[in-house]
Design a binder for these strands. Sequence first.
DNA 1: ACTGTGATTGCGCACACTACGCAATAGACT
DNA 2: AGTCTATTGCGTAGTGTGCGCAATCACAGT
Lengths: 280, 280
Amino acid sequence: MRGPRSGIASGAMNTPVPAGRRREAIYEQATTVGLASVEELSARFGVTPSTIRRDLASLHREGRLARTYGGAIPVGVHPETSLRERLGRAHLEKSAIGRRAALLVEDGEVLMLDGGSTVLALARALRNRSLLTVVSTALKTLETLSNAPGITVECIGGRLRDVSGSMVGPIAEAALERMTFDRVFLGADGVDPHLGICEAGRDQARLKELMIRASGEVVVLADSSKIGAAPFHAWTQLGTGWTLVTDDGVDEAQLKAFREQDVTIHIAPSEAEAEPGSES
Amino acid sequence: MRGPRSGIASGAMNTPVPAGRRREAIYEQATTVGLASVEELSARFGVTPSTIRRDLASLHREGRLARTYGGAIPVGVHPETSLRERLGRAHLEKSAIGRRAALLVEDGEVLMLDGGSTVLALARALRNRSLLTVVSTALKTLETLSNAPGITVECIGGRLRDVSGSMVGPIAEAALERMTFDRVFLGADGVDPHLGICEAGRDQARLKELMIRASGEVVVLADSSKIGAAPFHAWTQLGTGWTLVTDDGVDEAQLKAFREQDVTIHIAPSEAEAEPGSES
DNA sequence: ACTGTGATTGCGCACACTACGCAATAGACT
DNA sequence: AGTCTATTGCGTAGTGTGCGCAATCACAGT
């Protein structure tokens, strides 16, 4: 038939694609219509499915598209950021913590959900609840709850920190100053019984402070690796009388130190290996 | 008289059977770690790949997961049927309009981006720009620009309308009252040379009004199907002296009516031949 | 002007994944 | 108990995928 470089197909309506631009067009289509099939793309550009497959593989390698059986779809937002590592790291513990924390929430409450992957796990656990109002600073949390039928979702606004996908800054602070919550759920990069919770930036720490001030109850979600850790130096004081939800990887001495500060502790059961049908 | 095994609980299709729990666990894993392979799931639950495939197909039918070649991934942002239709409907025109509108933006500007799929196309076209500050009410727009290196992204806050993924309400209005922009880009469900732009809800219309008041220049993005349309009854007055970016499907009589109102009109070329791409 | 080098594309083949149908099993209601 | 339904495992046919190979075009150096 035709030689390998003759890309001219039927009729006048075709696109002389300089290779790389075709990939951009494929990416464009996938992200706009939400789907792109090999067959359809092959017909549209007048190239063989093999070439389309190569393009898709290239786009997939760059992490810009996700490969499906007959084509490709746009990938979420964060599949390979630093957030993904943190997500995959201890996701079982985080899920368990999220489920446990969801038990603290009663219908009709107005909640503040901080950023962080553990708090995101709580958001997932809340999706089927009803009559809740959830306010958050985290893009991913808003997204997760945006189509939950029984939940009113509000966003606090502010400047978007691209690494964490959460909002900080004066807009956020101004909005917080005119709201109150039944409960706030805070994430943390480190938790200390005396110092409180540790965060990467001063502005985030300040925001947490405002959240605490506006909330009736303070709940900190942190897996056991965060207990006693201090990776950064911006701290938010919690005082006494707050609640900690964590997994069962914390030793008793540490727990005792928290209890002495009048901290209520909930341990999320780890059902990692207790899945049904484990026998082969 | 309960049904055999299906409709037990009210509302939520809860599944007390091991099969249902397995599907939930699969969904859980896919959404937390971001990926789930047939092989791995098969090993984890001690069932055959066939069963896992059926689970994945079921989850895919419900729109909760996206199927990939060897497994499944979480679906990005739930593409609502309404939004998805609108996205797929005239995506070529919308992309062209977005690219054309991006030419109006100069480095260093502070922009306000409204909701809607056409404005989202502009956001995509702005991703590679630098020194921009973009403020938006639309979740999808924030998400699109959140990892763009040269762009500072700010969110306006407010109550999240789940259908459109944009924020409205008093928080949004309060935040808007203390900001100004070089330019605002507005979407619309209908555009009229005298009435202005048409929106589904009164609160959205009010928000647009505030955006306009805070902006030096007003640009409306609307594909030709929106020109002269009036699907709803909440209008935002634009007065004279604004800019319309649309595609080449508008007839001259309509364009004339806009020009008489001192509207600057930019027609996006139907075929996209744009920037030089040096892609390997 | 010619030619060497690299990039891109089409094609064929072996393999993996998928879809579908059939039969066996377990649980629940009459 | 009896029966019905959902669920599961397995086999087969079909389709998509990855990879190597050869042909062609673009570009640059001598």
